[in-house]
């Protein structure tokens, strides 16, 4: 028995939604960051599945680019977070609130 492609796409959509909701409701920068990574990996799953559906390699190629970009975002994002944590001892986005108006 093979699992149909639609099942993978549904799983991908569910993970993506989970990530989106996570970004919208959670308040810790680190968790927000993890939610974004979840969204990117949901996209990866969709790309791989669709690559098989279309029987071409474009989708699998896309995954490499997404992985590289995700790694870049981790590097920059974590260095921003670490820097903020050092100077304020918090990464809660509700407490990082000097700018408003």
């Amino acid at each position: 028995m093979t699992v149909p492609a639609s099942a993978y796409l549904l799983l991908s959509a569910a993970l993506f939604t989970l990530g989106t909701v996570g970004v919208l409701v959670r308040r810790t920068a680190l968790i927000l960051f993890m939610s974004i990574e979840l969204m990117l990996n949901a996209v990866n799953l969709a790309f791989v599945t669709l690559s098989r559906v279309h029987a071409n390699l474009d989708g699998q190629l896309a995954v490499f680019f997404v992985l590289v970009v995700a790694a870049v975002e981790v590097v920059v994002g974590l260095s921003i977070l670490v820097h903020i944590f050092r100077s304020r001892d918090t990464v809660d986005v509700d407490e990082v609130d000097l700018l408003r108006g």
Partner: peptide, 18 residues
């Protein structure tokens, strides 16, 4: 303030990219 700008831009920017 600059740190906070960077954090907000980064989080919302990567969200939009996703």
């Amino acid at each position: 303030r600059s740190q906070e700008a960077s954090l907000k831009y980064f989080l919302l920017g990567s969200f939009a990219s996703a």
